Amino acid sequence: MERRSFLRAVTAGTGAVAFAGTLWQGAATADTAAAAGDGPYGPLQAPDANGVALPAGFTSRVVARSTRSVGGIIWHGAPDGGACFADGAGWIYVSNSELPLIGGVSALRFAADGSIAGARRILSGTNLNCAGGATPWNTWLSCEEIFRGRVFETDPYGNKSAVSRKAMGRFKHEAAACDPDRKVVYLTEDEEDGCFYRFTPNTWGDLSAGRLDVLCDGAGGAVEWRQVPNPDAPLTQTRDQVDAARHFDGGEGCYYAAGVCYFTTKGDNRVWAYNAAANTLGVVYGGGASLGTVDNITGRAGGDLYVAEDGGNEEINIITPDGTVAPVMRLDGHGDSEITGPAFSPDGTRLYFSSQRGTSGDKTGKDGVTFEVRGPFRR
């Protein structure tokens, strides 16, 4: 099966149902599904004054720096996962802080013209908040990447207090992605033998109670879900409670669109695609020099995926529906950092992301930088 044909099937969502389980199983063991090529925006130009290399027609600016004032608050250290939310004629970008003990989330508010209109803390006093995910009801799920970590549901608008959602499991959480079609939330786990989970709330829109399942290998190349007996167990890890659970090497970013949940695993440098309608699993990207150490992931309605690197060339790469992998951004001088929190503004014209440790690479995250890139992004 040709790489480009496979990727078109994956990104078509429910269109991939027609593929037999054996084909998906074969794709999951292939070395690559997508390959390096010429991206839709053209080659990267020389780095600009902010050290950001972009295609022609794109521009960058710095919107926040760790330990410095922005919008009336001090921007947090070690910025990580993020998302954008509509706010009247403007929008809000939320960003996790992957710092121990003080972690939390900050929200940066933009006016309609893109100027910074304010900022606030929406979660404080938590631990190593790494990635997370936005919900259809406009809350941000902030995940702790620690032993028995929690998921916190936060309010980007600052009207409600953050709430711990223990029913979603106590493990080394990484990212979350909501599937409004099936009314479930997918969750990744950052362990060398981590799992891929699905949380089904008793009531959609209320994450206080529900059922946690873990992905397991099924018959004929398909997969199946089995319930985790005790998501809040103090001693037995969730990933060890179901013998048939499928394990992944370092779960990272997670993104849902059109019937498919995409997630990344850094240990084997893969981008996976779980087709929820067909209940099958495949690989969109299976490693290679073009995209190294995959991490956070987001996408656009047209099928383009955007994958950030933790290390590598410090890039964000696009994976197009026709199977092309190409850089759309590279940071110069940030070699000891990682790219985090890619998220598009509601109108799709601006891409936000951070360099977690900046040019110094200081592991305290005090030199983190949050950027905005504007340009003719494909919808």
Rank of each mutant, 00 (worst) to 15 (best):
F344S: 06
G125H: 06
I122G: 08
R65H: 08
T203H: 06
N317K: 14
I319M: 09
Q227I: 08
Q25R: 15
V105T: 12
S164Y: 03
P229N: 13
G90E: 05
I297M: 08
F263M: 02
G286F: 12
A49F: 07
C178S: 14
V242T: 03
S115K: 10
G132Y: 01
A162H: 05
R357C: 09
F199H: 03
Q237V: 11
V163D: 00
D206V: 01
G158D: 06
Y186P: 00
W272M: 04
G26C: 09
A12M: 11
G72F: 05
A33I: 02
D190K: 08
Q237T: 11
V294I: 03
Y41D: 07
S142E: 05
D190F: 06
S164Q: 14
S164V: 13
F147H: 15
R300V: 08
A30P: 00
L187W: 00
I297W: 02
S290Y: 09
P47A: 15
R148A: 12
A28N: 11
L215K: 11
D332L: 10
L99A: 15
S355H: 03
G302F: 02
K183Y: 01
T324H: 08
V223K: 07
M329Y: 06
G282K: 01
W75N: 11
D190T: 07
F199R: 04
D310G: 08
R165C: 05
D347Y: 03
A18P: 00
T280E: 10
Q237H: 14
A20H: 05
D268Y: 13
S208Q: 09
A277L: 12
T359K: 15
T11Q: 12
T236R: 15
L141E: 04
T203S: 10
F19N: 11
A119T: 02
S115Q: 08
L187N: 05
F371H: 10
G375M: 08
K166A: 15
R374N: 15
L331N: 12
G71D: 04
A233V: 06
N127C: 10
C130I: 06
T364K: 14
